[in-house]
Design a protein around this nucleic acid. Structure first.
Lengths: 213, 213
DNA sequence: CCTAACTAATCAACTGGTTAGTTAATTATA
DNA sequence: TATAATTAACTAACCAGTTGATTAGTTAGG
C-alpha cells in the first residue's frame, strides 16, 4: 500500500528540514545560519527543528552525516565496477568530480569543516570521512604492491585531488567574475567544466605515480 | 628619533587590534568572532574597533588584506633569487609551505574564505589574491614557452598545490587525533612535517610537468 | 460503526542572553 | 587650547532554545 499524502508526516518533515538545512548551512556556514530562517524556509514552526534534532549542533551533525554518507555510497558503488588500481583511481576522481559539480553544497560544507579541523563536529568528522579516504588509500596501496604506482603518500595525494576539485567548485562564481574584468593574460579557467578538470587531474595523477622516486 | 612609549598611540592600537583579530577570525571564523571578545583580548574599549575600522566587515577586510599582502611579499621576495622556472616553482611551493606552517592562521583564513567564494569580502578577495596566482601562472607559462614544462593548467595546478598545503596545515590536529585511535593501516601522515610534504609535492609537480600530453 | 482516550506532530508566544553598532562625555597630548 | 584617542553606558535587533497549549491521527471499547 502506498503512503497516502498526509497533513502530518514526521519523516517528510524531518527530510524537509534536513534538505533546507543542507542548503542553508552550505550557503551561510554554521554560525550564520539562523534556525528562525530555516523554519521559515521549511514552512514549519521553529520548535519542530528542536523537536526532531534536539539542538542546532544535532541538526548540523545529521546534515553532515547524510551528505558524507551519500558521496561515499556513490563513490563506492562506482568503484566495484573496476578491478585494476589505475581504473579505480580514475573512477574515484571522475565520480567525485561529477558529484561535487552537481551537488555543490558538498565542497562547500566539506571545506568549511576542514578549514577548521572540524570546529563544529570534530568527533564525528573523521569517522564519517574515514571510508572515503580509506578507499583512496587502499587503491594507492594495492597499486604500489602490484607495481603500477610508485612513491605514494595517500594523505597528501588525497588532499591534492580533493583540494583542487572542491576549490574549483566553490570558487567558480569568483573565477567567472574575475575573468570578466581581469586582464586576459590571467586565465582563471572560468570556462572549464568539471569533466575536463577531472580528465586533467586523472592524467596528471598517472604521470605522478608512474615512475619510481 | 625612536618612538617613545606612549599611553596613546593610534598606530599601536590599530596594530594591536589587527593582530588579535587575525587570531580570533582564524580560530572562530567571521560570524562567530565577537567584537566584545576582541576588545577584551586587546585590553581596549570596543568602541576603538569601530573608531579605527568603521565596522566588523571593515576590520575583516583589513585583516585579509594584511595577511594576503604579507604572504605575497614573502613569496615574491624569495622568487627573485631564481631565474629558471623549475627553481622558481620549487621556491614558490617551499616558501608557501614554510610560511603556512609557521603562520597557520593563513590557511585557516584562506580556506574559510575560498570555501564560500569570498562570502564576506568577494569584491576584494581575488584582487588581493591576484598577485600570488599571477606569479604562479607566469612561472608555468614561461616554463612552457621554454619547453621545460608541458600541458600546464595554472588554475587547477594552483589549487592542487595550495589545496594540499593548506589542508595539511588545517587538518593537522584532526589527523593527529585520528592516528591515535584509528587502526594502524590507515596512515594520516600525522608525523609528517611541512618540509617533507613540500619536498613531496615539488617532486610530484616535476613529474606532472615533465612529459608532453 | 461510533466515539472516547491516547499519542504524535505542530504551533504561537515567550525568555534570557548576545550581538554589532552608537553616543556623548572624558582624557591625554601636541 | 584644539584635537585625537579613549571610555562607559546604551540601544535595537537577533538568536538558540523552552513552554504550554492545540490539533490531527490512531486505537480500543461498547
Amino acid at each position: 500500500m502506498s503512503k497516502k499524502i498526509q497533513k502530518r508526516d514526521a519523516e517528510a518533515s524531518k527530510a524537509l528540514i534536513i534538505s533546507n538545512a543542507i542548503q542553508l548551512f552550505s550557503k551561510k556556514g554554521y554560525a550564520s545560519s539562523s534556525m528562525d530562517e530555516l523554519a521559515k524556509l521549511c514552512g514549519l514552526n521553529k520548535a519542530m527543528v528542536f523537536y526532531y534534532f534536539k539542538n542546532k549542533k544535532g541538526l548540523y551533525e545529521a546534515v553532515m552525516t547524510q551528505v558524507l554518507e551519500e558521496i561515499q555510497q556513490v563513490v563506492l558503488e562506482e568503484n566495484v565496477k573496476y578491478t585494476k588500481p589505475i581504473e579505480e583511481l580514475e573512477s574515484f576522481i571522475r565520480t567525485y568530480a561529477k558529484y561535487a559539480c552537481t551537488h555543490p553544497y558538498l565542497p562547500s560544507l566539506l571545506l568549511k569543516e576542514l578549514s577548521d579541523s572540524g570546529a563544529v563536529v570534530p568527533e564525528m568528522l573523521f569517522g564519517a570521512m574515514r571510508q572515503l579516504f580509506a578507499l583512496f588509500s587502499d587503491i594507492l596501496n594495492r597499486g604500489e604492491e602490484k607495481g603500477c604506482f610508485h612513491d605514494t603518500n595517500p594523505m597528501v595525494l588525497y588532499f591534492m585531488v580533493l583540494g583542487a576539485l572542491n576549490l574549483m567548485v566553490t570558487t567558480k562564481p569568483l573565477r567567472v567574475a574575475a575573468s570578466q574584468k581581469e586582464d586576459i593574460v590571467l586565465d582563471t579557467c572560468a570556462a572549464c567544466d568539471m569533466t575536463e578538470i577531472a580528465d586533467y587531474i586523472v592524467d596528471k595523477m598517472k604521470k605522478m605515480l608512474k615512475e619510481p622516486k
